[in-house]
């Protein structure tokens, strides 16, 4: 299966990068832009298919390594094949 993990800063946590990007967007004339948050995506292939067991493994991977639960949230998408 093909997995895409989206990691983003928690809404309650300051995102200095997002603030800087928002500032740049506004200076380009997009004054209505607000709430910019910068995260990251991590894509990989993994054995198995979409199942509760796979999701349990993925949650463990996301909580332990790919995101830091203190400051980040994550979600993932699974494509078969």
């Amino acid at each position: 299966m093909k997995v895409t993990v989206f990691v983003s800063p928690k809404n309650t946590v300051l995102d200095p990068q997002g603030a800087a990007v928002e500032h740049a967007m506004k200076s380009l004339g997009h004054e209505s832009v607000e709430g910019v948050r910068v995260g990251k995506t991590i894509t990989f292939k993994m054995g198995g298919s979409d199942s509760p067991e796979s999701r349990e493994k993925l949650d463990k991977l996301c909580d332990g390594l790919l995101s830091n639960p203190v400051i980040e949230d994550y979600r993932y998408e699974i494509e078969e094949g």
Partner: peptide, 10 residues
Amino acid sequence: PGALIRNDCL
């Protein structure tokens, strides 16, 4: 406890 993120000044 806690975490260290990017400096607010970048």
